[in-house]
């Protein structure tokens, strides 16, 4: 059967490819610089697993309902975690957001629109 042959070929190719990847290119743990070690807004195990949910929850509250002042917010992450050298959470694998997202191979979409550097607020008045 032709389709059967194709299936086997595909399976073999996938197996070969993945074994090569595992054997020869171990992905190094990211050497992320933590600029302000200490307390995060939530325990590490919580923030590591759920930061995307927490941020998504907050973004809808802020954008759609105009609610400000929450503890968990993207600009909060950036203020605390931006590199002291470059002022950004992006730029290299040492930078906070980029380093970890590159390691886990998850596309980081926030900074297509959000400013990844801290200290860029132009608006007058105190931040909420």
């Amino acid at each position: 059967m032709r389709s059967n042959t194709f299936g086997w070929l595909l399976a073999t190719a996938i197996a070969a490819f993945s074994s090569v990847t595992w054997a020869e290119v171990p992905v190094p743990k990211p050497a992320v610089t933590i600029e302000n070690p200490g307390e995060c807004v939530a325990p590490l195990e919580v923030i590591r697993r759920t930061h995307m949910d927490l941020l998504k929850h907050q973004r809808d509250k802020t954008l759609r309902y105009g609610e400000h002042g929450a503890k968990i917010k993207l600009n909060g992450c950036i203020d605390c975690h931006a590199s002291k050298k470059t002022g950004s959470v992006l730029g290299s694998q040492e930078n906070f957001c980029q380093g970890c997202h590159a390691y886990v191979a998850v596309k980081l979409d926030c900074f297509e629109c959000h400013q990844p550097k801290n200290g860029m607020v132009k608006s007058a008045g105190a931040k909420p």
């Binding site: 600009n75 297509e112 629109c113 959000h114 550097k117 801290n118 860029m120 607020v121």
Partner: peptide, 15 residues
């Protein structure tokens, strides 16, 4: 693509 956004005014390509 944009880079110099105001942190309080996110803007970006394609929207």
């Amino acid at each position: 693509p944009l880079t110099e956004q105001n942190p309080e005014v996110p803007r970006g390509k394609g929207c």
